[in-house]
Design a protein around this nucleic acid. Structure first.
Length: 106
DNA sequence: CAGGGGGCTAAGG
DNA sequence: GCCTTAGCCCCCT
């Protein structure tokens, strides 16, 4: 493996870790903030393979449409939905809610 | 090396 | 609002 692989991965994880409680971000935006525009799917891949006991707030990442990227009827959808509710966020996000809760970085 | 498929996205019907 | 298409990056077979 190359050092770049580790860096790119760590960079994304570091960015994810900074998403504030009470706010959400999108796959594409996280990639961008991590200095890796265009790697939205890579962000998704990383999230998918996180250990179950991770500290990373995976539930604070939704898609560019302001929705949860899981089938509406799935367990995962329900878990993410519940976690967001706990933090005061209701998805799908309305246009106005996006302006208010979408994390744009520091 | 080829194919298939993902927690994606922007653009068009 | 829905669905398709094309582009994207990375992983697994």
């Amino acid at each position: 493996m190359t050092g770049n692989e580790i860096e790119s991965r760590q960079g994304i994880l570091a960015t994810l870790a900074r998403i504030p409680l009470g706010q959400v971000s999108t796959y594409g935006h996280v990639a961008k903030l991590a200095g890796q525009p265009g790697k939205a799917r890579y962000v998704a891949y990383i999230l998918k393979n996180l250990p179950s006991d991770t500290e990373i707030p995976w539930h604070r990442v939704i898609n560019s449409q302001g929705k949860i990227s899981f089938p509406h009827a799935s367990e995962k959808y329900q878990e993410q939905f519940d976690r967001l509710i706990e933090e005061g966020i209701v998805v799908p996000l309305s246009k106005r809610a996006q302006e208010e809760f979408l994390w744009l970085g520091n």
